[in-house]
Design a protein around this nucleic acid. Structure first.
Length: 463
RNA sequence: GAGGGCGUAGCUCAGUAGGUUAGAGCGACAGUUUGUGGCACUGUAGGUCGUGGGUUCGAAACCCAUCGUUCUCCCCA
């Protein structure tokens, strides 16, 4: 027998980790719901054709495909072989694989909306918290199975939606006490830049290159663009574009000076300014800045784009999103514009771990451990325990009669804050000894008082 | 897809000019006479040195392959 192991890039989550992850999930869910989003869940797998071609060439290769069942069936053997030939030739074949694991939450959402648009109330606001899978090579902050938390609004072009998403981001990260920078840009500004640099076909290469600015520096960005055949004059223009700095107002002014003659640029800038003006009074101390180098890979974005970076940590983005004009058009339902954002929970976890931002109280689960001090005593303890449990207080009874030492150590290891001693004396008196393990103090108590004690403690955890 | 680092006890790691029965700390378990834990002391268990080849009188150590893991690039959350 070989040692058991996990598939590359996947993880088990032990108790403490799950509790911390739940803390993040619950915070995000709560904010989603207070902003009027409703939950949606979709299957782990989709038809392969639903996913293919939606994430660009690179994306297609990162989709986990599921091998069809029944390939060994003799009746289908010839077709299976032919299918394999196809796959070896770099094509996909339904005879070999027709399903794939979910790659993100946006495309399945688009598929859902396209299938159900007759029944939905628009604008439709949904949130979705589920794992996705990518056949990527794992490294820091990158896994093959990870969770996304998405919120999207479809069926509305109103910029108010963007404003709400900015505030939603601010609310979540303030609740988590995680300092972030929320970056905003608009694809229309990038499109205008591409227009002045040779035409729309330059949009993607230029976006990809300038997105790396802070990582590789201007020299390499310029080299990459030159390599792709962009004229020197255009590169000079991009250099000016990237040199724009200052506060948000100054950046917008500078951008108008550079690209103001392009109608698209003016539209994009006006949109950004509207969002900033609407959201600013409510975003508290969150840092929100225009970043014209922000491009984001997904090519279905058409307007505003968002990205969240954690402050004080070396980590890729921990969230992002943007506006798309026609997401469901891919599935035959045109004219449904929308805007959405996503939280990268696994990265948020890593960042919070690094910055030690998790509340210490998350680890406490069981509140009280009854010592097992004999059959009769345990039977009585069981009665008390069930009463406490019925009141919602997490309680355990030690599993067998053992010396105190053992039972104390069990409580310590599980970080149980209180133990109840119910031995022969207590049995006779109808009271237990309640001991606070961190303080070492103890006192006698009846069942009523014990219940009261924990109910009050639940309301005021600082005690 | 390309390129590095690292695989020794449950965990963190020592251990190389190749040389006896491979070590430590932490953890686990047991005990220091069974109604009060954390500390301390004593003892016990636990290792095909990732795997398979090769070089050698002799390999945890050197070489090759392979698997796993981790990081960087590409791309992304």
């Amino acid at each position: 027998m070989s040692k058991p192991g996990l598939p590359q890039g996947t993880r088990d989550f032990s108790a403490t980790v799950v509790q911390r992850r739940q803390y993040i999930f619950q915070t995000i869910r709560r904010v989603f719901e207070t902003y009027g989003f409703q939950p949606l869940e979709t299957p782990a797998m989709e038809n392969l054709e639903t996913l293919m071609g939606k994430y660009g060439e690179e994306g297609d290769q990162l989709i986990f495909k599921i091998l069809n069942n029944g390939l060994a069936n003799p009746d289908k053997a010839d077709r299976s072989r032919a299918a394999l030939e196809n796959v070896l030739a770099g094509k996909s074949s339904k005879d070999l694989t027709e399903r794939a694991l979910r790659y993100d939450l946006t495309i399945p959402f688009a598929r859902y909306v396209a299938m159900n648009h007759g029944q939905l109330t628009f604008p439709f606001k949904r949130y979705q918290v589920q794992p996705v899978w990518r056949a990527d090579r794992p490294q820091k902050g990158r896994y093959r199975e990870f969770y996304q938390c998405d919120a999207d609004i479809v069926g509305s072009s109103s910029l108010q939606n963007e404003t709400e998403l900015v505030l939603l981001y601010a609310a979540v990260f303030q609740a988590l006490q995680l300092p972030i920078t929320l970056k905003l840009n608009n694809r229309k500004v990038l499109a205008a830049l591409a227009q002045t640099c040779g035409g729309p076909e330059w949009m993607v290469p230029i976006s990809v290159a300038i997105d790396k600015l802070d990582k590789i520096g201007w020299e390499k960005v310029a080299a990459e663009l030159e390599n792709k055949g962009l004229p020197a004059a255009a590169i000079e223009k991009i250099k000016t574009y990237l040199s724009i700095s200052g506060n948000n107002a100054q950046k917008a002014t500078a951008m108008r000076a550079l690209l103001g003659s392009e109608a698209q640029a003016e539209t994009g800038l006006a949109e950004l300014e509207t969002i900033l003006a609407q959201a600013q009074p409510f975003w508290g101390n969150t840092t929100v800045e225009l970043d014209f180098t922000l491009a984001r890979g997904l090519n279905y974005y058409t307007g505003t784009i968002f990205e969240v970076k954690a402050q004080g940590v070396q980590m890729g983005s921990i969230g992002g999103g943007g506006r798309y004009d026609d997401l469901t058009g891919l599935f035959g339902v045109p004219n449904l514009p929308g805007v959405g954002i996503s939280f990268g929970v696994d990265r948020i976890y890593d960042v919070m771990e690094e910055l030690a931002l998790f509340p210490t109280t998350l680890a406490e689960t069981t509140q009280l451990l009854f010592f097992h001090l004999g059959q009769k005593e345990a039977a009585e303890a069981f009665r008390w325990m069930q009463t406490l449990r019925a009141a919602g207080i997490a309680t355990e009874l030690f599993h067998e009669q053992q010396k105190f030492d053992k039972q104390f150590r069990y409580a310590e290891k599980k970080q149980i804050p209180f133990v109840a001693i119910l031995g022969s004396d207590e049995l006779a008196a109808g009271k237990i000894v309640l001991k606070n393990l961190s303080q070492g103090s103890q006192s006698n108590m009846g069942l009523e008082d014990l219940l009261l004690f924990f109910q009050q403690r639940a309301e005021n955890p600082s005690r």
